[in-house]
Amino acid sequence: MSLTEDTPTPKRPSGFWSYANPVKFLGLSERILPAFWGLAAVSLIVGLIWGFFFTPDDFRQGSTVKIIYLHVPSALMAINAWFMMLVASLIWIVRRHHVSALAAKAAAPVGVVMTLIALFTGAVWGQPMWGTWWAWDPRLTSFLILFLFYLGYIALWEAIEDPDTAADLTSVLCLVGSVFAVLSRYAVNFWNQGLHQGASLSLDKEENVADVFYIPLLVCIAGFVFLFLALVLYRTGTEIRLRRARALQAREART
């Protein structure tokens, strides 16, 4: 399972799939990572400072409305990270690109942190608004379940030594987990009607947040997206290097 030089590819794929080659991937990520880190830093700093210092209080929620600049983007990324893992797992299963499997592995801890941020900010927001840190509301509950799925996924990666076996099994788990995550979402909805407000970003203007809050929120979301991309790209590179080092070491030991 050597990653790079030993396997000369018969035909060189071009376009998007050519980045499934680890060396090319590393080259590309090296080039675009500084931009991603920069964009993430700028938009996070601008968005959060804007949100924290320069937005008015909500007439009902007071200053707690400022939590939205962390809560909504992190919740969004928590779900999207899982979705990205699902896509990467599918690519691994179908096309057997190692980079894809490693990208899924790299995204999981980022998703965990995003889920934690969403849960934490939700709890401190819920305390003054609903009078409780935690309620078994459908949205909250499904996030907690998502968190458990992340934990299981990471634990499975850690538990299996052979990297290809681990990639295969975690991909299967990711697929099955996605189905059950959606099922749980509906089950939980059925089980308890919630306190949580509807989506804050729906196109339906009626229940949407006002413009003063909306623009800095978009900046923060962009910041979280770029942060996620930068982290995942960087971590994927780390995983590729670790695997390559291990492969070289194994070859050393053999000679």
């Binding site: 934990l151 634990a155 499975l156 538990a159 099955v176 059950f180 749980s184 089950a187 939980v188 059925f190």
Partner: peptide
């Protein structure tokens, strides 16, 4: 490890069954 993997998958069944 198996408990950690299986228990979240049991959530929908448990919810509807217990309900």
């Amino acid at each position: 490890l198996m408990s950690l993997l299986v228990l979240p998958l049991y959530v929908p069944t448990l919810i509807f069954g217990a309900e």
